[in-house]
């Protein structure tokens, strides 16, 4: 009985705060998707036209598809690059492994925008890489292709996400009972086969978690494409952002967000058991 009042006092303020600022806004967004316009009298009228417009115009959903493809490539490459890293840290780095992991995480907490700016300095047409390749004679003239393309978006996002993909894989590898590998070795299993039949399957939940930790936020990404994507590299998130910054069509923007949110929720529900949020908070 006493516990009940303690729980209420501790839980009520944070729960109310999150409901008011997270759940309620999503509800308002849903209501807004039926409104005729963003401001004034139009805002008081309700209509289904926005939905008709959204689903009649195939280019919106096509761009969502493209964004899913970009997010898929990004997540796949980030996981493939992170796995050996996490494996090295967990199995080979010994006592130093947490320190070595921390060293990798540090850059991820410095300014995102400025690291992207730096990639522009490196990849841009007057950039470090182009001038370097020019001086080597590998290329004849500065190639602007290194930036403002879908590939530039993927490269930049992979760069951004590698530390976060490494964390869940590392945690999964850390949880593997090392005696299983000893047992495999005692029974005459060669190391690579032990890796394929013991380590890899047991680390799979971490790999799947890492994939979605990258895939889901990348689906709605708009900052990176705005900075390095150019016209070819825009994503679904840019479309949403545009409804609020230039087009000022809030109801349409609300529908686009709802569709994205629905997609994310479906993914989360299907892969729920693999996605351990606590892995994100650190090793």
């Amino acid at each position: 009985m006493e516990n009940r009042s303690r729980i209420t006092i501790l839980m009520l303020p944070p729960a109310l705060w999150l409901v008011l600022l997270f759940i309620v806004p999503l509800g308002i967004m849903a209501v807004f998707s039926f409104r005729e316009g963003s401001f004034g009298a139009e805002r008081e009228q309700f209509t289904l036209e926005n939905y008709q417009h959204f689903f009649a115009n195939r280019s919106y959903l096509n761009l969502l598809g493209t964004s899913a493809w970009i997010a898929f490539q990004t997540a796949l490459i980030a996981v493939v690059l992170s796995y050996p890293l996490a494996y090295f840290l967990s199995f080979r780095a010994g006592e130093a492994r947490v320190t070595l992991l921390t060293i990798l995480i540090v850059p991820a907490w410095t300014s995102f925008l400025l690291r992207i700016l730096s990639w522009k300095l490196i990849l841009g047409s007057g950039g470090v890489l182009n001038t370097f390749l020019l001086s080597l004679g590998v290329i004849q003239e500065a190639s602007p292709l290194l930036i403002y393309s879908r590939a530039a978006v993927v490269v930049t996002l992979v760069y951004v996400w590698i530390p976060f993909a490494t964390l869940p894989i590392f945690s999964a590898l850390e949880r593997i009972d090392r005696r299983l590998l000893e047992a495999a070795a005692d029974l005459g299993c060669p190391p690579w086969e032990a890796f394929l039949r013991v380590t890899l399957p047991l680390s799979l939940p971490g790999v799947i978690a890492a994939f979605f930790f990258v895939f889901i936020p990348t689906l709605g990404e708009w900052v990176t494409p705005a900075l390095v994507g150019g016209a070819q590299g825009i994503m679904y998130g840019n479309l949403i952002q545009d409804q609020f910054v230039r087009a000022l069509n809030w109801p349409l923007g609300a529908i686009m967000s709802l569709v994205l949110m629905a997609l994310v929720l479906v993914i989360l529900i299907i892969f729920n058991r693999f996605i351990r949020i606590s892995d994100l908070a650190g090793a």
């Binding site: 729960a15 999150l18 806004p25 889901i216 936020p217 990404e221 949110m261 994310v264 989360l268």
Partner: peptide
């Protein structure tokens, strides 16, 4: 339930949260 709901802001794309808060 609270744990599940409160961890959603960690995984939801920020653009969705931005839009929802602008409208709020």
């Amino acid at each position: 339930f609270f744990l599940a709901i409160s961890s959603l802001p960690l995984v939801i794309p920020y653009v969705v949260l931005s839009v929802a808060l602008v409208l709020l």
